[in-house]
Design a protein around this nucleic acid. Structure first.
Lengths: 218, 218
DNA sequence: ATTTTGCATCTTGTATACAAAAACATTGAC
DNA sequence: GTCAATGTTTTTGTATACAAGATGCAAAAT
């Protein structure tokens, strides 16, 4: 299945916004981007419309599109929702999860733990993401799974910065293990509660990092 | 603020899909639609891309776009998520809601009740929607509010059919009142619990109506 | 000096033209 | 008669051309 140029451009633009090449409020000019990517305006335009729908940029008809980084308040709100969605996944999963998936979660946690010991933040990040992805799937609700993946993807660039808080890693691992334990016992409300705190803390502690972000004022 | 033709077309196509003019799996031809709306392919194309992102149609590159009505399983999943999101709204609202909003909810419930008495299903529908919209806002989380509105909008055509179940109306009203009472007492978990059931029942009872839907088999 | 109005320019939105890939049908081989 | 190969046709994806609204500046009026 061959992808369209416009999709590739959308992904690239997304990355450029995530890594801060295009700052908040910056205008994205169609012709400029066309030249940059060596294509005509059409695919660039389709890419911009896609980004506008996913909320990464704002589109003012006849005026242009502007980068729209979420401000601190919106980020906290998004983390709050993420926490609720993941808690829901955990609660659902408690009654629906397979033994196969439980051991898979344990496996992932083991690798995650090893990554912490080795100080391999990148590996930790990948395995951590996998842990959460498994839980989404084991919620037994594909729609919920997709929504979680969508929001996780949007929060990804802000979540990454969290990992630099050294002390948090070990606590995070303990929470993972608590979640798996609760799931193994079929204790949905406990799994949900731990998961909620596990994710929400990222949003609550987030303001500690606000100084290091360019998106200080909305 | 003048809207674009492509946006207008997207809305019209959405409506045509909702009301079943375009059945599930049907192919949406760009040139055909261009002729139908009296415009060129460009705005039609942009509209289709927008619908594809919102999940109403599926876009296969170089092959075309096809109507993608959610099947019964996906619908139940979506209602399940809607129930969780609204329950979250209720729980948040319990600690954040203003007295002003509480009386507004009571007002809306009163009009809702009157609509039931008068047998005015349409008015009931509008006031019911307002009730929920107020709760979204009073969650104090704008992002959550927007997500709820988005999903509600998507489920709207399937929710409407629920109202024909006569017996459900009165019970639904009682639930509304229970929710407001719980909110007034600041009992978030109870408000959430009632709300969850209030919304979820639409999904659970949904299969009773499956026969009347064209989207029987995925 | 400040505001307002008209013009020039720029940018977006839409139409059309072209390229390439996929669907389709026809024809030929087995 | 079925299946495969090839050529034709249709349809999407991209480029370009055109139309119209938005922005900015300058000049004139208050």
């Amino acid at each position: 299945m061959e992808r369209k140029r416009s999709d590739i451009i959308a992904d690239q633009l997304e990355e450029l916004i995530f890594n801060g090449t295009f700052g908040n409020g910056e205008r994205l000019d169609e012709v400029q981007l066309s030249a940059r990517f060596g294509v005509s305006r059409t695919p660039v335009r389709e890419a911009l419309l896609r980004l506008a729908q996913s909320g990464l940029v704002e589109h003012f008809p006849r005026r242009g599109v502007f980068v729209r980084q979420p401000g601190p308040i919106e980020l906290i709100e998004m983390f709050e929702v993420m926490a609720e969605l993941e808690a829901t996944c955990a609660r659902f999963a408690a009654s629906r999860i397979s033994d196969r998936a439980v051991s898979e979660l344990n496996e992932t946690n083991r690798r995650c733990h090893a990554a912490v010991e080795a100080g391999d933040a990148d590996l930790y990040y990948r395995e951590n993401e996998k842990f959460h992805a498994i839980l989404y799937k084991e919620s037994g609700n594909s729609f919920l799974e997709q929504e979680c993946l969508r929001l996780q993807r949007r929060l990804q660039p802000f979540r990454r910065t969290q990992l630099r808080l050294r002390g948090r890693l070990k606590q995070s691992m303990q929470e993972h293990e608590q979640i798996v334990a609760a799931l193994g016992q079929g204790d949905g409300s406990h799994a949900a509660e731990v998961m909620r705190g596990h994710v929400a803390v990222q949003g609550e502690k987030f303001h500690h990092l606000m100084a290091s972000l360019k998106t200080a004022a909305a």
